[in-house]
Amino acid sequence: MRIAILSGKGGTGKSTVAANLAFSLSQTMEVTAVDCDVEEPNLHIFFPDGDVAEEEVLTLVPIVDPDLCNLCGECSRFCRYGALVMGLNGPNLNPQMCHSCRGCRLVCPQDAITEKGRGIGKVSISHPLSGLTLITGTLNEGEVMAPPVIKKAKEISNSGQLTILDSSPGIACPVIETLQDADAAILVTESTPFGLHDLELAAEVVKDMGIPSGVVINRSDGRDQLIGTFCKEKSLPVIMTIPFDRKIAQVQNRGDLISRLDPSWSEKFQELYRKTSDLKEAVQ
């Protein structure tokens, strides 16, 4: 089972939920947590222990053989991303603009173009706890192609066991890549108009993709009518409510986990998992 954790808005406590869920479940079963927020991966902060193995993430970029190139310019005319431009001495590549479509290679009449890998990020794998595997995707700073890094991180996790996917905020392509093949999603929100606005966006995405979902209200001050009404309208069950509490905030801010310090929270997160599994069952 693959559970994706997302939120339209950043900072709602998505990683808090992912980390606590991973910790709590690792007490009784094997679980893999994948940090798909590759621009700002944060799960590792909660699980610093264990040796880390790293794999580089490569994307393919063209290389031009100057002996074969006849400067015809077909490649640069084809490239829709402006990544290849004909200079006086042949095509020049701006690798960060290349989407690896290999169109230039296909259109070159001289067969002068081959491809090579270029590093854009890495995937780190560790075993911080006996029941937990942590996989972190990290996009190199200044790079823009997050989806290949997410894809690689997910591929490594693909072993059929319970997997928790911590998504990036928002609703753009990295989130879609994370949600791909997820069995259920947990939408984390907070009970403010900001939280509601962004929950609406996230709800639209999971609905489009047909992924059964439930809502976690974080930092609740008990006045959750706004979110509650929306969830009722959209038939999205609220599967957990975490109250606002300075102590919880402090634990979190220090990089610690409430479920590690307080077993009653560990139980609550296990309950969250059961409710999430039920969402999937209800669909099948």
Binding site: G73, S76, R77, Y81, G82, M86
Partner: peptide, 28 residues
């Protein structure tokens, strides 16, 4: 939708220009 600077550069060079006069342009 992206890469317009280099693509426009390619276009005017393909058109045979040797000098460009413009206001501002990006690194790419």
């Amino acid at each position: 939708s992206g890469g317009v600077g280099p693509r426009a550069a390619q276009l005017i060079m393909d058109h045979g220009a040797k000098v460009l006069i413009t206001g501002r342009l990006g690194d790419n």
